Amino acid sequence: MKQLYTTLGPLPKERLGMILPHEHVFVDLRTPDQPGYGQASPEDVVALMAPQIETIKAQGITALVECSTGGVGRRADIDLAVSRATDFPIVVPTGNYREPWIPDWVRDASLDELERWMVRELEEGMEDTGVRAAWIKISAGDDGITPLEERILRAAARAGRATNAVIGSHTIKSRVVMDQLDIIEAEGYRAERFISIHTQAEPDFEMHRAVAARGAWIEYDHLGREPDDEVVALILRALEAGIGKQLLLSHDLGWYDPAQLGGGVPRPYTAMVERILPMLRSAGVDEATITLLTETNPFEAFAR
């Protein structure tokens, strides 16, 4: 049976409704060698972020995917603290971001060592939290994959093959996504278990079609960050192109930032329910498609 691994344990589809597949609770975009990197007390993060979670719970959101991976401040203990304080499932990744956000231990690790680390976090748990990673989050340079990023990607493909975990990648250009898919398939894994994060950043819509034709998920994660009419128009174009069954929708918002005084000012995860879904309904999108986009697709992408 497929389950979504969360901070509150594995959950089957019948216990979940709408899922936000790309958000952040805690992020540090400084490089890991900077003083104070990734440092904050769970209590401070709970105080700032719990109200954001309570707001989306009231909207009917039932889970959120944390996209802060290694190198950009992943703190599974903080995600767990926020989750317990709000009784709300959070889905946390293993993996690591791109250069220069790569800590020394990842830079020095062999491909086999990276694979074993990811598999351990997916099957046993992250650090001492007891929380199992649900998925693998990586990235690639905007102009191509560096040798170090390729090593991380190959380790992710092998760990994914061993566990059926989906791999999501912050990749801005779809031609680089195609290179990533080639590597994943060369390692014996499937394009269907890959998410092209930030697909909307690729201006050529035909590349959205091309990535989907390979079997991968595409993700429009700019809800609430770009003009609503532009966001809705892009979603409708994807639906008209017949790629709705591979489309994920989210905001890429939040979050507590330890580089900012008091964690900064969080940006809410509310635009999808508050504005985008009503606009889609007004444009003629039926409830079955709304359910596909907000419930079925995110569960199928991240569950294993």
Rank of each mutant, 00 (worst) to 15 (best):
V231K: 09
I138K: 08
S110G: 06
A47E: 14
M1N: 09
D77E: 12
W101G: 05
T291M: 07
A165F: 00
M118W: 05
I183K: 03
V92A: 06
W117S: 11
L253D: 14
I152V: 13
S174I: 04
E230H: 12
T291P: 02
C67V: 13
E121V: 10
A186P: 07
V72W: 06
S196T: 07
E185H: 10
E206I: 01
G9V: 09
E127N: 13
L80C: 07
T55K: 15
D182A: 14
L111T: 11
E300Q: 15
A186S: 15
A157K: 07
E113V: 03
V72L: 12
M18L: 10
Q52C: 13
R190C: 10
M178H: 14
A162G: 01
V27L: 14
W105H: 15
T6V: 07
V46I: 13
Q180G: 08
D79F: 08
P93T: 07
K173L: 13
A157T: 04
K2T: 14
P93V: 06
E127F: 10
Q34I: 11
P32I: 02
T146A: 04
I56G: 01
Q52N: 11
R267P: 02
G160Y: 01
W101L: 10
N164P: 05
V285D: 03
I167A: 10
Q34R: 15
Y37R: 01
A210D: 12
Q39M: 12
K13N: 06
A40D: 09
S196K: 09
G70H: 00
K173H: 13
R267M: 13
I90W: 04
R190L: 14
A109G: 01
L239S: 04
H198N: 06
G168L: 05
A238D: 04
G264P: 05
D143Y: 13
V285E: 03
L293P: 00
D143W: 13
I235R: 07
P298W: 00
R84C: 07
T199I: 08
I19P: 01
F88D: 04
R116S: 15
L20S: 02
M178Q: 13
L11H: 12
E202D: 10
P10H: 04
H222E: 13
A140W: 03
L234M: 14
L148S: 03
D204K: 12
A157N: 01
I102K: 04
A140I: 06
E115Y: 00
E14L: 02
E287V: 02
N96Q: 12
Q3L: 15
Q34T: 14
V106C: 03
I19A: 02
